[in-house]
Each structure stands twice: as C-alpha cells, then as structure tokens.
Design a protein around this nucleic acid. Structure first.
Lengths: 203, 203, 203, 203
DNA sequence: GTCTAATCGAGACGGTACGTCCCGTCTTCCG
DNA sequence: CGGAAGACGGGACGTACCGTCTCGATTAGAC
C-alpha cells in the first residue's frame, strides 16, 4: 500500500487558507486567471489545469467552487459583466443607439469571447442554460423599460409590439456576436425598430 | 428536404474495400452513425471512436475523409440540412408564416439539436464557423427573395429595410432555437416584420 | 463546447503503433521505466505518471495493459524474476545454502524492493494476492523438490516434515526481506532445517 | 489483552477543550474512529479526513498529536495490540500450541487486518517500519522466554538453536497471516520446532 | 492472370485535459 | 485559548478523446 507523498510545506508567499470559509483572494485570483486565459487563448485554449496554474491554486480548489468548466466560465462572465446603464438620451432612437453601441463595444472585448463561450456551453449544459436564460430575461426587461420610457416621454401614446421589438433587438445583437459581425453597421436595424409610426398591424 | 435516411450498412458481415477508391456505403454508414449519435447524445456525447464503432468503420477511415472532428460534424450537417422551399402563399405574411412554421418544425426534431451543436462548435472552431456563415448567408438570401417577391406581387412598391427584416427574422428564430423557446408564439413578430406600411424612416 | 486541442503530430523518433496489437517495444519500455523508477525511488516514489513520462508513453497505454498500479508492479516483478536454478551441490545443507544465498542476493537488489511492494500491495488487492500466492506455491514446490533430492541422494531414508521445513525456510526468508534483515546471518537456521536426524516426532 | 473497545465519544453534542492540555476523550475518540475505519474499509480506505469526521475532531487535532498518517495508524495499533500472556502449560509443545492458538485467534479478527496493514505500510514508511521492528523484537523475546522456560523446567539441559526456533515460529505465523492461511493446520510445524532431541548439528 | 495501389476494419499509440481523492498546513471563530 | 471545521496548494489517480499510425485482408484496374 503506497502513501501519497505530500510536497514539502512552508513555501512562503503563497496564499493559504483563511479558515473554514472561502478565501476571497483565491476566488479573485482564479477568476482573474480564467479571464486572462480566455482573453489570451480563446475558448478552445481555456482549461482548468492552466487556470489553476496561473492562479497558483490547486485544481481541487477550482472544482470545490465551480463544479464544471462551464460553471467557472459563467462565474467569470458574471464577475465581469458590465453594470449596464440604459441611458436616457431623450429619444428612443438615441437610447437604442446608446445601448447598442455600449453592448457592442463591450462584446468586442474579452467579455464577448466569454459570452459566446457561455452560449455555446449552454447548448450541452442545463445549469448554464438556466443561468443564461435568467440573464437574458433581465436584459430583455431592461430593453422593454427603454421602450416604455419612450412612451412616458410622449414620443408616442402607445408603442406597438413593444416586447417583440425588444426581443428582436436582443436576438439581432446575439447573432451579430455569434457570427462575429459586431463590426457591421446596424443603424438601419435600429431605425426600423425605433419607428413608432407603424400601423400596429396586430391590433 | 435532403434528409433521406440512407439505409443501414448492409448486414452482410463487414464492409470491405471496393478497390482503390472510396466506398460510398462506408461514407453513408459513417454519416448515418454520426447523425444518430449526435441526435442521441448531443454534441457533448459525440466522439469519433463511437462513430467509427457504430459505423463499423476504422477510425482512420473517418480521418481519411474528414480531417477533424469538426469537419465530420459539418459534413453530417450538410448531408442532413433541409432543402428548403420558400413557398409562395400569395401574401408576405403568409410566406413568412409558412417559412417560420416549416423551420420551426424542422428544428424541433433531430436537426435542431444538430444545428445548435453546429453553432456551439462554431464558437471554438474556425472551419465550422466559416461553413455556418456560408449557410447563414444562403438562408438570408432565401428570405430576401421572399420579401422581394412581395414587391413583385405588388403588395408594395418598395419594401423598406428589406435586408434588415430578413436578418431580424433569422436572428429571432436562431435565438428561439438556442434558448429552447421554439414552442413560444411568434405571430406578433411576423406581423411586425410583414407590416409594409411603415414610414420607411431611413429614407 | 470546446474541443480538445490535439498536439502537433509528426514528432519523429517516437514509438508508434505497430497495428491493432500490442507493441512489444512499448511494453518493454514501460517495464524498464517502472523497474528503474522503483529501483531509484522505492515503492513510495513509484507512480504511474512518472513511469509514463520516462517510458515516453501515454498514461492511457499503461492503463490499457495494467489496470492498476499494483498490476504493473507485479508485471515488472514477473518480467524480472530470476529464473531460479535449484542447484544440486551434493548435500542438503549445500543446496539450502546455495538457494538461500542466491535468493538473498537477488532480493538485496532492485528485485527485493519489488517483491516487498507486491506483498504490501497484495494486502489490499485481491488480484495481486492471487498472483502472489501462485508464485509462492511454485517456489514452495521448488524447495520441496530440493528436500526430496536429499532423500534420493540417500542422505536419509525419509526426511521428516519435509513440507514444513520448506515452508519454514520460505517464511523465514520472507520475513528477513520484509524486515530489512537480509544481511543477518542465517546459517544456524539452515543447519537446523537441514538436520535430518531429528526424531520425526510426528510419526 | 488491551483491546477493550472504548465507548463511543459521548453523545453530548461536541467535545470541548479541557484547557491547555490534551483531552483524553478526544484521543480515545480518534483512536476508536481510526480503528473502526480500518476494520471497516481496510488500509486502502483509511484516510485522515474520514477519521476526523467520525471522531468529530478537527484534522488539525489529529496532526497535532500524530504528525503523519503513518503515525496515527501505528498509534492505533499500539493501543489495540493484545497484551499477551505466554502461558505456562507445563510442556514446550503445550506452550507453543497455546501461543499459536492465541495469536491465530486474535489475528483472525480485526487486529489481523490491522497487523497486515501495518506490515504493508511499513514497506514504504520508515517510521512504521521502525516501530514494527521494535514490536517484532519484543514478541521474539517473549518466544525465547518460552523456550528458555522449557530448559528451566528440565525438559532438556540445553535447547539447541533456541533463538532460531523462535524466529522460525514467528516468521511462519506472519506468513500465514499475510497469505490468509491462518485456518491451515500448523501442528506439524509446532511439533517440529518443539522437538528437543535434535542432534544440535551446529555445535 | 498477375501485380500494384488504394481502401477497408481494427485498435494501439503518444498526448492533453478531465474531474476526484487525499495529504498535511493553515486560519477562523465558537464556546 | 483549545478545538471543530474545513479551505487551501499540491500532486497522483484513473478515464475519455483526439488525431496518427501500422497491420493484414481485400479488391479494382493496370499491365
């Protein structure tokens, strides 16, 4: 019967336990390492071993808090996700433009890689799918508010198909992200969605 | 649509070489096995070993024709992709409805799982991404034709934002697929997109 | 969904598959590496990872042929076990001395470390235990022959307690091995066991 | 023998500190938990975490007193080792029989599993090896006394090869233990060792 | 009719990453 | 201030696939 030979202790300068509870430093180090890694090598080059190594953490520590690779990716995304301000520019088109530009710019960076990864991961992981769905709905509500604000501002007595416009905008941006087309123009799309003088055909 | 489920490899023991050329039976058997496997276990459970085993083929045979896992997935998808008919129902809304219903029904089956897998895989595989993009554009062209037909029919002298409407519809359906919401109602969306009396705000 | 990124191929100089069957070179390389490692670092320092690395083999290859660490140790022992000659020196005491010296010398080297490892491993692994038992019985038979030879030589009409003497010798040497006492004198023991003029108390 | 199974740690919630000194209840609880665990799952299933958990003790408490896993195993063994009485039956053969039966019976129970574990562990752990050796020598001395007693009793003026007979008996029993042969007959062996009329060939 | 060249099923191979398990250390906070 | 609780870094474990390779059998077409 062999014993697992433990390594020598006493290496100074390393993080240690801070008691029987999660060490925030460790968590931060892991999330940072993960973010850096995915930014550097993309989703395909992302792996737990390397994250642990960069974070100077044990692999078991990663798995203690994030049971799967997907869960870690999601956590990184959440910790990095922008705290969106749905700015009031005074007009619906302005608001949409501001929102779209904001999101597009964010997604063009490291965060975009992450979000794509999460969507991909959600296709084969129910937990991730659930989290993503929750997040999507929050975003959708934010957009609906944006449209509602236009009503309140008096741009229109009642915006027809408000929820659908929000969903269409959302979908459009998702697809632009996932097909790497964030650089493409999208003013026409916004003008189309911001046109409040449609005939409300579904009334 | 082109999704004729080819017959299972003949039960006559094992397939043999048919000389110094590609054995079409082998190819069919592999594509079938791959399709079946992905339908059964999803992308996560898809692996070359198992495909080879189910197809009673050698792994080398797989790699001879499809240099990577991604290439095989893509090939299976191509061999299974529905051969869409963009039916002319006499009205734009009718056409859209027909198209949407058709696609939704297809995606609700095995093909949907497959398409989601492809999109997911495309996030970390450039080859797949390229092929997906090509396919997406073809589909987009088909939709644009559908809108153009409405003009020709005289429903409108000129449909404003034609390409954007097509892209919005496409995006919307993609997102419904990827968020497992294909069962949700989408008439409102179609009516919105089919409303030809908009002010053409971007002229 | 991430793909496992395979390493670049074409590294020349490495062993490759020799078809759908066990590569004897690989097996030899692994057994050698394992033998070397255990000789170098002892049982405690023996691990599969390191064996694989030294043998320039994949870990999976080790586990394909030897399902556990114990199985590999056993295999190495078997491949290294001396092909014992129970030499006929003309007298029982001479034969015993020759045997004991031979075995002691063998066990003082790398092989001894192995044999101890196997006995240890057998305490918690039924397969190993079985193999060890088989081997032990073979050795016992060899010893019994050695005693029988003394009868045939006419040293005695009938050696009393022949099987027990063999077992006692065996046990004695095992214990000397396991308690690292192979350097201790053991002539007295041999003379005691070789004394054929005992009263045969069990008749 | 000292193997009184101490009572389970008191069910009064958790044990508390008894001041700046070792709490004997805690020690007992840990030793009990360890003994129980090794009896239940064998050496392979023995681990510090589980011992701590069962003893409702902190891991640090274990390591405070027993610096390594091996040390704890050893401590448990010591606390459980039978307090042998080398009974005087009036004859050497009787004494040997009594001793052998006693030891065999003990080893057939939990203690046997434990002793095997210790021997196994000793092969890759120097501390254990040392302690085991000390214990072995004590036992050997006990056996030598047993033979000496026969002399004193006048069964023989001088028993030849006294120490060797003791060692042979010891080794024989160890091997029977380690090869799971405790059920085998061993009277022949005892008679052979108890035969005092040998020719003392080594004088 | 024989030879040649490519294809076939099979599966071993070197690797990388996975997720689990345990060791021995460390820190907190409860009582 | 002792002790339970358990997080931590580290490292081995055994598994799962990837994409490559070699084998021996097979067969069409070139000769």
């Amino acid at each position: 019967m062999a014993m697992t030979m433990a390594t020598e202790p006493k290496k100074t300068g390393t993080r240690r336990s801070v008691g029987a509870r999660r060490n925030p430093e460790t968590e931060a180090a892991i999330l940072n390492a993960a973010a850096q890694l995915i930014a550097e090598k993309g989703l395909a080059g992302f792996n737990m071993q390397e994250v642990a190594k960069r974070a100077k953490a044990g692999k078991a520590t990663l798995y203690r808090w994030w049971p799967t690779r997907g869960a870690l990716i999601l956590a990184v995304y959440k910790s990095r996700k922008p705290n969106f301000v749905y700015k009031d520019t005074g007009s619906l088109l302005g608001d949409l433009t501001w929102f779209t530009n904001e999101l597009t710019n964010i997604w063009k960076g490291e965060i975009g890689v992450f979000f794509k990864a999460i969507i991909a991961e959600a296709q084969s992981n129910a937990d991730i799918a659930l989290s993503l769905d929750t997040y999507r709905k929050e975003r959708l509500d934010g957009l609906i508010d944006l449209f509602t604000r236009a009503e309140k501002r008096g741009e229109c007595t009642e915006i027809p198909d408000l929820a659908i416009r929000a969903e269409l905008l959302m979908s459009f941006l998702w697809q632009r992200l996932m097909t790497n087309q964030l650089d493409q123009e999208c003013e026409t799309m916004m003008k189309f969605l911001a046109d409040l003088n449609q005939h409300s055909p579904n009334k």
